[in-house]
Design a protein around this nucleic acid. Structure first.
Lengths: 342, 342
DNA sequence: CTGAAAGCGCTAACAA
DNA sequence: TTGTTAGCGCTTTCAG
């Protein structure tokens, strides 16, 4: 496995070229304040001229930092996860870090050791995108083993427990879920049904609470996985009951399934059935009818997760959130229920 | 930036524990054949007992391999790209490699040096998911600088030039595009219009050729970006012409835009307008009407890309393709054109 | 078949 | 403010 090793220019070459010791070069590339301005300039010129780039491996091995983050996730093709990953990568690269991805199989049981084995070594900085049981468990395992170098985003089935945790970056899913539910209630629906994505407790709880607050019946949530197909089947079941007029879905993919189910069941959307999704996927606005959904700033969340991690590594105070708050986007799949001819 | 350094067990610890030299341990973990079976067993037991895991950094620094691949892509949330990434990760992890992701901004010009700077060092194994101008250029830059450690998947705007190249893993987009076009022609459409994704020449060429072969007029392709919105606008324009009855789209996201445009323009799908997509996204089967599209094995392609890279690193012969061939999936958005009342 | 010596490129501690 | 000396954990020589 030869990886082309054409002797690269190293710190010693630079030192020689600049007429200083290699240590001084090290100080310069690490932004140490203990270097005279003139020396720094000389060294930087040499670096420039020689096209020197520090060897990450050597740096890390020598006790510095690898400047590398491992992201654990279950599904890179889920909209939320992939956008989050993108946000992490963005912030990480800006900070000179490398991001590695490790994908976990939702159907496979992982021992804690298996989770740790995903990292370069114990203590390696990690971000887990926790959105289902598998990733939530991974998050717990990592948190237990290396609390100071693990952060998470998403929330998994943590619900409130961690809202205030100093290692979690999350949007207030619960509040928007309640908001979306109220939107449907305000439209005149007697109650709202819920198609649940795996372990996204906050959304379910927000929905529940909004119904309770309004004194409405709380129907049992229908458990789906991430697939549109699962939502389709769940919705087909739900729609056997003619009283079902509104469905809140754990995400947009599920909403698409619900809309199709309505179509097959001969129910007009939004006339006979209102559907509200979550995520505002790129295609949501262009569905026929256009999906009413909740816009979520996953990319911002990802950036926030990295910044949080970095602050922990640096021992800096927790950075303030910079991501956009969730917002309900009302489009065409939600409307007042049509008056039924009894 | 402390990364918790609780002295890990290293090769010397193992050596001591097994009563051999650290060199022998090195041989064992590298599967060297020059170790006596008994010695090997002793060492392996020690490794087991001590929970030893080789330090990747040290290995790489000492001249071994970093066992790490960098994946260059522009958009982790595009279906094709994220599935491909997932496939790469899968194969890479199975082979004990780490995968790093580097996301490029399609709107930003990159000098070749900027591209190289994405890698840990010159010669680092890389896979570029080439699907637009930016990634295609990145691919060229990398290929030029480190031909033996760069492979690509997708194809970008390479068209035929590289079909046979030994560093590209691609599906026969061109053939299926032709197949999809013929499907529409066979249905009775006079011609087929094309909504183009950025630089996916093979698809466009396949479409063109099918039209030519059938002796049909070749309308100018409408250039879109990856967004559903761009397809929507392009389709709105196209539909001003009542003779447009069939549109082939560069991917499913675009197809969704075309379907919505038809809806807005008051044209029934598939009665007045047939639409065919590409990719078979998870939601495609559940659209209303369900999308006729082309199923593509991106995950298999990703795995293939990694295997190809590995074969190059090992100097092994090119592995045989294991991915599924593309297939046209006829659903509800394609049908014979309705007879127009002149 | 096994061991000993010499680094890979860098940072950490210490000394000047 | 700068330089010197030791490693980090491993692989590559080269001797046994």
């Amino acid at each position: 496995m030869s990886t082309d090793r054409p002797r690269r220019v190293n710190i010693v070459d630079v030192a020689r070229h600049a007429g200083v010791s290699h240590q001084t070069v090290s100080r310069v590339i690490n932004d140490s304040p203990l270097v005279a301005a003139a020396t720094r300039r000389k060294v930087q010129a040499a670096i420039e001229e020689l096209g020197f780039r520090p060897n990450r491996l050597a740096r890390a091995l020598a006790g510095g930092t690898a400047r590398e983050v491992t992201v654990l996730t279950t599904d890179t093709s889920l909209y939320g996860a992939s956008e989050t990953l993108s946000g992490i990568e963005d912030a990480a690269r800006a900070a000179g870090h490398t991001v590695s991805v490790s994908v976990m199989n939702p159907d496979q049981p992982y021992a804690d050791a298996d989770v740790l084995a995903r990292l370069p070594h114990l203590g390696s900085p990690a971000i887990v995108i926790a959105h289902d049981a598998t990733t939530t468990r991974a998050m717990r395992a990592l948190r237990a083993a290396q609390p100071s170098t693990t952060v998470a985003t998403g929330g998994g089935d943590l619900a409130d427990e961690t809202e205030a945790a100093d290692w979690l970056v999350a949007l207030d899913d619960r509040a928007v879920a309640a908001r979306a539910t109220r939107h449907l209630l305000d439209l005149g629906h007697a109650t709202v049904h819920y198609l649940a994505i795996p372990s996204k407790a906050p959304r379910r709880l927000g929905w529940e609470q909004a119904l309770r607050d309004a004194g409405r019946p709380v129907p049992p949530p229908a458990a789906c996985d991430w697939s549109t197909a699962s939502a389709y089947h769940a919705a087909i079941g739900l729609l056997e009951d003619p009283d079902v007029t509104a469905i809140l879905c754990g995400n947009d993919d599920l909403a698409v399934g619900a809309v199709r189910a309505a179509h097959i069941a001969g129910r007009a959307v939004p006339g006979d059935l209102s559907v509200v999704g979550f995520d505002d996927c790129p295609y949501a606005a262009f569905q026929v009818p256009a999906l009413t959904t909740v816009g979520l700033d996953f990319r911002g969340l990802g950036r926030g997760a990295f910044e949080l991690l970095r602050s922990k590594l640096d021992g800096a105070p927790r950075p303030r959130p910079t991501w956009r708050q969730p917002e309900l986007i009302v489009r065409e799949t939600s409307a007042p229920p049509r008056n039924r001819t009894e």
